[in-house]
Amino acid sequence: MKAKGAKMKAKVLAPAATETEFANRARGTAGFDYKGNVPKYHTAKEMAGFLLDLYDGDKTVGIVDGHTYEFELRDPIFNYAGNR
């Protein structure tokens, strides 16, 4: 889109484990305890903050490192056909 001068931008948020209601829905249970079952995760509030950082910034990708759980804003990771 950028190469064609489009005003719209596509951005990608790549989270790691995030404390949400999804675990309850996926398991068909209630009360899944992230603290007791997931060694590292972000809260939904933290992830929302990351999303706002991505939205407000000029980078294309917001990614959580799967080892350190640090959030990083980056340029596109892979080339696309019009960017060679």
Rank of each mutant, 00 (worst) to 15 (best):
R84Y: 14
A17I: 00
L54C: 08
A16M: 10
A6M: 12
Y41K: 02
Y69Q: 05
F22A: 10
H42T: 03
F32G: 03
F32Y: 14
N83H: 11
K4Y: 12
Y55K: 09
N83Q: 12
A6S: 15
E72N: 04
D65S: 07
D58S: 14
T18M: 04
A48K: 10
A23I: 01
N37Y: 04
M1I: 05
K40T: 08
M8S: 13
G31W: 05
K35P: 02
G62W: 06
Y55F: 14
Y34A: 05
E21V: 11
D58H: 09
R27G: 03
E70C: 00
A16P: 00
G57P: 09
T18A: 06
A44I: 10
A14S: 11
D58G: 08
P39Q: 01
G5Q: 10
K35F: 06
A10I: 15
T29K: 12
A10T: 15
E70T: 09
D53S: 12
Y69G: 03
Y80G: 08
D33W: 04
Y55L: 11
L73K: 09
I77L: 15
G36I: 00
I63R: 15
N79Q: 07
Y69L: 09
G31F: 05
A23K: 12
R27C: 03
M8Q: 08
L52T: 13
H67S: 13
T20H: 05
N79K: 12
